[in-house]
Simulated assay, not measured.
Amino acid sequence: MSLDNTPEQSQLGRSSAYADRYDPTLLFPIARATQRAAMGIADDALPFFGADLWTAFELSWLNPRGKPQVAIAHITVPCETPHIIESKSFKLYLNSFNNSVFADAAAVRDTLRADLAEAAWRGSGRSGGIGVKLLTPELFDREPVHELDGLDLDRLDIECTHYQPAPELLKSDTTQPAVTETLTSRLLKSNCLVTGQPDWGSVQIRYSGPAIDQAGLLAYIVSFRNHNEFHEPCAERMFRDIWERCQPTKLAVYARYTRRGGLDINPFRTSWPQALPLNARTARQ
Protein backbone atom coordinates (compact mmCIF):
# COMPACT_ATOMS: atom_id res chain seq x y z
CA MET A 1 0.00 0.00 0.00
CA SER A 2 1.22 3.50 -0.82
CA LEU A 3 2.45 5.53 2.11
CA ASP A 4 0.75 8.68 0.78
CA ASN A 5 -2.84 7.45 1.00
CA THR A 6 -5.44 10.18 0.62
CA PRO A 7 -8.98 10.16 2.01
CA GLU A 8 -10.36 10.05 -1.52
CA GLN A 9 -8.60 6.71 -2.12
CA SER A 10 -10.33 5.10 0.86
CA GLN A 11 -13.57 3.08 0.87
CA LEU A 12 -15.55 6.07 2.19
CA GLY A 13 -18.61 6.72 0.06
CA ARG A 14 -18.13 3.54 -2.01
CA SER A 15 -20.04 0.29 -2.10
CA SER A 16 -17.98 -2.28 -0.23
CA ALA A 17 -18.06 -6.05 -0.03
CA TYR A 18 -17.88 -7.07 3.61
CA ALA A 19 -15.18 -9.69 4.13
CA ASP A 20 -15.98 -12.06 6.98
CA ARG A 21 -12.55 -13.74 7.14
CA TYR A 22 -9.72 -12.09 9.01
CA ASP A 23 -7.92 -9.61 6.73
CA PRO A 24 -5.57 -6.98 8.20
CA THR A 25 -4.89 -5.53 4.73
CA LEU A 26 -8.28 -3.84 4.93
CA LEU A 27 -6.89 -1.18 7.31
CA PHE A 28 -6.33 2.10 5.46
CA PRO A 29 -3.92 4.54 7.16
CA ILE A 30 -4.04 8.25 6.25
CA ALA A 31 -1.17 10.59 7.12
CA ARG A 32 -1.95 13.12 9.84
CA ALA A 33 0.70 15.49 8.47
CA THR A 34 -1.36 16.70 5.49
CA GLN A 35 -4.18 18.24 7.50
CA ARG A 36 -1.83 19.38 10.25
CA ALA A 37 0.34 21.23 7.75
CA ALA A 38 -2.75 23.03 6.42
CA MET A 39 -3.35 24.28 9.99
CA GLY A 40 0.26 25.32 10.53
CA ILE A 41 0.98 22.41 12.90
CA ALA A 42 4.38 20.78 12.38
CA ASP A 43 4.10 17.02 12.69
CA ASP A 44 7.60 16.81 14.19
CA ALA A 45 6.93 19.52 16.81
CA LEU A 46 3.40 18.98 18.05
CA PRO A 47 2.04 21.68 20.38
CA PHE A 48 0.02 19.09 22.31
CA PHE A 49 -0.05 15.64 23.85
CA GLY A 50 -3.00 13.26 23.74
CA ALA A 51 -4.67 10.38 21.96
CA ASP A 52 -7.70 9.33 19.99
CA LEU A 53 -10.00 7.13 22.05
CA TRP A 54 -12.03 4.74 19.90
CA THR A 55 -14.85 2.44 20.98
CA ALA A 56 -15.77 -0.53 18.80
CA PHE A 57 -19.24 -1.80 19.68
CA GLU A 58 -19.52 -4.38 16.88
CA LEU A 59 -16.80 -6.96 17.43
CA SER A 60 -17.42 -10.68 17.06
CA TRP A 61 -15.45 -13.85 16.24
CA LEU A 62 -15.77 -17.63 16.52
CA ASN A 63 -14.30 -19.71 19.32
CA PRO A 64 -12.57 -23.05 18.50
CA ARG A 65 -15.97 -24.81 18.63
CA GLY A 66 -17.44 -22.37 16.09
CA LYS A 67 -19.59 -20.51 18.61
CA PRO A 68 -19.83 -16.73 18.07
CA GLN A 69 -18.29 -14.50 20.73
CA VAL A 70 -18.90 -10.76 21.22
CA ALA A 71 -17.00 -7.97 22.93
CA ILE A 72 -16.60 -4.19 23.12
CA ALA A 73 -13.14 -2.83 22.38
CA HIS A 74 -11.60 0.36 23.77
CA ILE A 75 -8.73 1.47 21.54
CA THR A 76 -6.18 4.20 22.28
CA VAL A 77 -4.23 5.70 19.37
CA PRO A 78 -1.50 8.15 20.50
CA CYS A 79 -1.66 11.50 18.71
CA GLU A 80 2.00 11.21 17.72
CA THR A 81 1.31 8.26 15.41
CA PRO A 82 2.00 9.40 11.84
CA HIS A 83 -1.33 8.03 10.63
CA ILE A 84 -4.96 7.92 11.56
CA ILE A 85 -6.88 4.83 10.47
CA GLU A 86 -9.78 5.66 8.19
CA SER A 87 -12.94 4.65 10.03
CA LYS A 88 -14.71 2.70 7.28
CA SER A 89 -11.59 0.60 6.72
CA PHE A 90 -11.52 -0.02 10.47
CA LYS A 91 -15.14 -1.20 10.29
CA LEU A 92 -14.40 -3.50 7.35
CA TYR A 93 -11.39 -4.88 9.21
CA LEU A 94 -13.44 -5.61 12.34
CA ASN A 95 -16.07 -7.36 10.23
CA SER A 96 -13.38 -9.64 8.87
CA PHE A 97 -13.24 -11.25 12.32
CA ASN A 98 -16.86 -12.42 12.09
CA ASN A 99 -16.25 -15.93 10.72
CA SER A 100 -12.66 -16.29 11.87
CA VAL A 101 -11.64 -18.61 14.69
CA PHE A 102 -9.58 -17.29 17.61
CA ALA A 103 -8.50 -19.24 20.68
CA ASP A 104 -9.92 -16.66 23.11
CA ALA A 105 -10.49 -12.95 23.72
CA ALA A 106 -6.82 -12.43 24.55
CA ALA A 107 -5.85 -13.67 21.10
CA VAL A 108 -8.29 -11.22 19.52
CA ARG A 109 -6.91 -8.38 21.65
CA ASP A 110 -3.31 -9.18 20.72
CA THR A 111 -4.20 -9.38 17.03
CA LEU A 112 -5.90 -5.99 17.17
CA ARG A 113 -2.91 -4.45 18.93
CA ALA A 114 -0.43 -5.75 16.38
CA ASP A 115 -2.45 -4.86 13.27
CA LEU A 116 -3.49 -1.39 14.43
CA ALA A 117 0.03 -0.51 15.54
CA GLU A 118 1.45 -1.61 12.18
CA ALA A 119 -1.05 0.55 10.29
CA ALA A 120 -0.73 3.61 12.54
CA TRP A 121 3.09 3.65 12.46
CA ARG A 122 3.53 2.31 8.90
CA GLY A 123 6.51 3.58 6.93
CA SER A 124 7.63 6.06 9.58
CA GLY A 125 10.78 4.31 10.74
CA ARG A 126 9.33 4.57 14.23
CA SER A 127 7.36 2.11 16.26
CA GLY A 128 4.99 2.33 19.17
CA GLY A 129 2.02 0.73 20.78
CA ILE A 130 -1.72 1.00 20.38
CA GLY A 131 -3.79 0.42 23.48
CA VAL A 132 -6.54 -2.21 23.18
CA LYS A 133 -8.84 -3.28 26.00
CA LEU A 134 -11.51 -5.90 25.35
CA LEU A 135 -14.68 -6.02 27.44
CA THR A 136 -16.50 -9.34 27.35
CA PRO A 137 -20.24 -9.54 28.09
CA GLU A 138 -19.92 -10.10 31.85
CA LEU A 139 -18.35 -6.61 32.03
CA PHE A 140 -20.93 -4.77 29.90
CA ASP A 141 -22.95 -3.63 32.92
CA ARG A 142 -19.91 -1.74 34.21
CA GLU A 143 -19.72 0.50 31.17
CA PRO A 144 -20.61 4.03 32.33
CA VAL A 145 -22.79 6.57 30.56
CA HIS A 146 -21.71 10.03 31.64
CA GLU A 147 -22.01 13.51 30.19
CA LEU A 148 -18.89 15.63 29.98
CA ASP A 149 -18.26 17.49 33.23
CA GLY A 150 -18.17 21.28 33.17
CA LEU A 151 -20.20 24.46 32.86
CA ASP A 152 -22.72 24.09 30.03
CA LEU A 153 -22.16 26.75 27.36
CA ASP A 154 -25.41 25.76 25.65
CA ARG A 155 -27.35 27.65 28.34
CA LEU A 156 -26.36 30.91 26.58
CA ASP A 157 -28.93 32.49 24.27
CA ILE A 158 -26.61 33.64 21.50
CA GLU A 159 -27.06 34.59 17.86
CA CYS A 160 -25.17 32.27 15.50
CA THR A 161 -24.18 33.46 12.03
CA HIS A 162 -20.99 31.52 11.25
CA TYR A 163 -21.06 27.90 10.05
CA GLN A 164 -17.45 27.54 8.96
CA PRO A 165 -14.66 27.70 11.57
CA ALA A 166 -14.35 31.32 12.69
CA PRO A 167 -11.44 31.71 15.13
CA GLU A 168 -12.00 35.47 15.13
CA LEU A 169 -14.97 34.81 17.45
CA LEU A 170 -12.56 33.75 20.20
CA LYS A 171 -11.31 36.26 22.76
CA SER A 172 -10.24 36.42 26.38
CA ASP A 173 -10.05 39.16 29.01
CA THR A 174 -6.41 39.74 29.95
CA THR A 175 -7.31 42.61 32.29
CA GLN A 176 -8.85 40.32 34.90
CA PRO A 177 -7.23 37.71 37.18
CA ALA A 178 -6.56 34.33 35.57
CA VAL A 179 -9.13 31.58 36.02
CA THR A 180 -9.26 27.80 35.83
CA GLU A 181 -12.48 26.39 34.45
CA THR A 182 -14.09 23.63 32.41
CA LEU A 183 -16.63 24.46 29.71
CA THR A 184 -18.76 22.05 27.67
CA SER A 185 -21.14 22.03 24.72
CA ARG A 186 -23.27 19.44 22.93
CA LEU A 187 -23.59 21.66 19.83
CA LEU A 188 -20.50 20.44 18.01
CA LYS A 189 -21.23 19.24 14.49
CA SER A 190 -18.92 18.81 11.54
CA ASN A 191 -19.09 16.75 8.35
CA CYS A 192 -17.06 13.86 7.00
CA LEU A 193 -14.22 15.16 4.83
CA VAL A 194 -15.06 12.76 1.97
CA THR A 195 -18.78 11.95 2.12
CA GLY A 196 -20.13 15.13 3.71
CA GLN A 197 -22.22 13.08 6.13
CA PRO A 198 -22.85 14.80 9.48
CA ASP A 199 -20.72 14.01 12.52
CA TRP A 200 -22.39 14.94 15.82
CA GLY A 201 -20.43 15.51 19.00
CA SER A 202 -19.89 17.11 22.37
CA VAL A 203 -16.79 18.97 23.43
CA GLN A 204 -15.12 19.79 26.75
CA ILE A 205 -12.59 22.61 27.09
CA ARG A 206 -10.46 22.83 30.23
CA TYR A 207 -8.06 25.72 30.62
CA SER A 208 -6.16 28.02 32.94
CA GLY A 209 -5.41 31.62 32.02
CA PRO A 210 -7.30 34.74 30.98
CA ALA A 211 -11.06 34.21 31.14
CA ILE A 212 -12.36 33.11 27.74
CA ASP A 213 -15.48 34.90 26.50
CA GLN A 214 -18.08 32.15 26.78
CA ALA A 215 -20.50 33.48 24.17
CA GLY A 216 -17.70 33.79 21.65
CA LEU A 217 -16.46 30.28 22.46
CA LEU A 218 -19.92 28.78 21.94
CA ALA A 219 -20.35 30.63 18.64
CA TYR A 220 -16.92 29.30 17.61
CA ILE A 221 -17.94 25.71 18.41
CA VAL A 222 -21.15 26.17 16.40
CA SER A 223 -19.10 27.54 13.49
CA PHE A 224 -17.86 24.00 12.72
CA ARG A 225 -21.41 23.06 11.67
CA ASN A 226 -20.81 22.98 7.88
CA HIS A 227 -17.07 22.24 8.05
CA ASN A 228 -15.74 19.12 6.29
CA GLU A 229 -12.94 17.53 8.30
CA PHE A 230 -12.21 14.30 10.15
CA HIS A 231 -12.78 14.19 13.91
CA GLU A 232 -9.11 14.26 14.89
CA PRO A 233 -8.10 17.43 13.01
CA CYS A 234 -11.31 19.15 14.16
CA ALA A 235 -10.13 18.74 17.76
CA GLU A 236 -6.62 19.88 16.81
CA ARG A 237 -7.99 22.93 15.00
CA MET A 238 -9.97 23.86 18.12
CA PHE A 239 -6.89 23.42 20.28
CA ARG A 240 -4.71 25.56 17.99
CA ASP A 241 -7.29 28.35 17.58
CA ILE A 242 -8.05 28.62 21.32
CA TRP A 243 -4.35 28.44 22.21
CA GLU A 244 -3.41 31.21 19.77
CA ARG A 245 -6.43 33.48 20.22
CA CYS A 246 -7.07 33.18 23.96
CA GLN A 247 -3.50 32.52 25.18
CA PRO A 248 -4.24 30.18 28.10
CA THR A 249 -1.36 28.84 30.15
CA LYS A 250 -2.93 25.38 30.07
CA LEU A 251 -5.46 23.92 27.64
CA ALA A 252 -7.16 20.57 27.05
CA VAL A 253 -9.75 19.87 24.34
CA TYR A 254 -11.78 16.64 24.44
CA ALA A 255 -14.34 15.88 21.73
CA ARG A 256 -16.71 12.91 21.87
CA TYR A 257 -18.43 12.09 18.58
CA THR A 258 -21.47 9.86 18.22
CA ARG A 259 -20.84 6.45 16.72
CA ARG A 260 -21.18 5.54 13.07
CA GLY A 261 -20.96 1.95 11.86
CA GLY A 262 -20.45 0.75 15.42
CA LEU A 263 -17.44 3.01 16.04
CA ASP A 264 -17.05 6.24 17.95
CA ILE A 265 -13.93 8.43 17.84
CA ASN A 266 -13.03 10.73 20.72
CA PRO A 267 -9.92 12.91 20.25
CA PHE A 268 -8.19 14.38 23.32
CA ARG A 269 -5.47 17.06 23.04
CA THR A 270 -3.71 18.72 25.99
CA SER A 271 -0.90 21.21 26.44
CA TRP A 272 0.54 19.33 29.42
CA PRO A 273 1.18 15.64 30.12
CA GLN A 274 -1.69 14.10 32.06
CA ALA A 275 -3.72 10.94 32.31
CA LEU A 276 -6.14 10.34 29.48
CA PRO A 277 -9.83 10.92 30.30
CA LEU A 278 -12.08 8.00 31.04
CA ASN A 279 -13.49 6.59 27.80
CA ALA A 280 -17.08 6.85 29.03
CA ARG A 281 -19.78 7.33 26.41
CA THR A 282 -22.28 10.16 26.58
CA ALA A 283 -26.01 9.48 26.30
CA ARG A 284 -26.01 10.26 22.56
CA GLN A 285 -23.19 7.80 21.90
Rank of each mutant, 00 (worst) to 15 (best):
H146W: 05
H146S: 07
D141C: 10
R109V: 09
K67N: 14
D152C: 02
S124T: 04
P82I: 15
S87R: 06
N95I: 10
I84W: 00
L94E: 05
D149A: 07
N63T: 02
V145S: 03
E80L: 12
F102A: 02
P78Q: 15
G131A: 04
A166S: 07
G131R: 03
A71V: 12
Y163E: 12
E143H: 14
F90R: 01
F140T: 11
P165C: 11
P78G: 15
G123H: 13
L135T: 14
I85L: 15
A105N: 11
H74P: 15
T76N: 02
L134C: 13
P82M: 10
T111A: 11
I130T: 07
I72D: 03
I72L: 05
R113F: 01
K133N: 03
E86K: 06
D141K: 14
S127C: 07
P137Y: 08
D52C: 02
G128N: 03
C160F: 06
L156Q: 12
F97P: 00
A106M: 10
G125V: 13
K67C: 12
V77Q: 04
D154Q: 13
H74G: 10
W61V: 14
P137F: 06
R65S: 09
G123K: 15
L148Q: 07
I72M: 03
L151K: 12
E168Y: 14
